[in-house]
């Protein structure tokens, strides 16, 4: 279970395992950059970049989840995402949260 709330509805957090995070830095190939450059002549959604960031974010979340599994947690609460531009054309996606052990409330 991954949520960005502090608690999980219908569950009690019985144990806190600690901070978990995952990140990834990706760049799109030149072809996409040229495509985005052309699209930007008029502005609007740059679909190639949207896809790239969505894939990357899924990857960062996956890494965060593996981190939590190592800690024997079964849920991650209070998840936050950040994105930042690193040098020319690459972006870093970062996801972090608190790994916890949650049980269904009685």
């Amino acid at each position: 279970m991954i949520v960005n709330t502090e608690s999980i509805p219908g569950h009690d957090i019985v144990e806190t395992r600690g901070l978990v995070s995952g990140n990834t830095i990706r760049a799109k190939h030149l072809g996409r950059d040229i495509g985005a450059g052309l699209k930007n002549l008029v502005g609007g959604e740059l679909t190639g970049y949207t896809e790239l960031l969505n894939e990357s974010r899924a990857e960062a979340v996956q890494r965060m989840v593996s981190d939590a599994m190592v800690m024997n947690a079964n849920a991650i609460v209070n998840v936050r995402f950040t994105t930042s531009a690193i040098a020319g054309g690459a972006a870093e996606l970062y996801a972090y949260g608190t790994a916890v052990v949650a049980t269904p409330s009685a």
Binding site: I2, I8, P9, G10, K39, N40, G43, L46, T50, F81
Partner: peptide, 18 residues
């Protein structure tokens, strides 16, 4: 909320300013 399932959702869009 009681008796609920939860799931993290995200959506993003890259907007070119032009």
């Amino acid at each position: 909320l009681d008796g609920a399932q939860v799931e993290l959702l995200s959506s993003s869009v890259v907007m070119g300013i032009g």
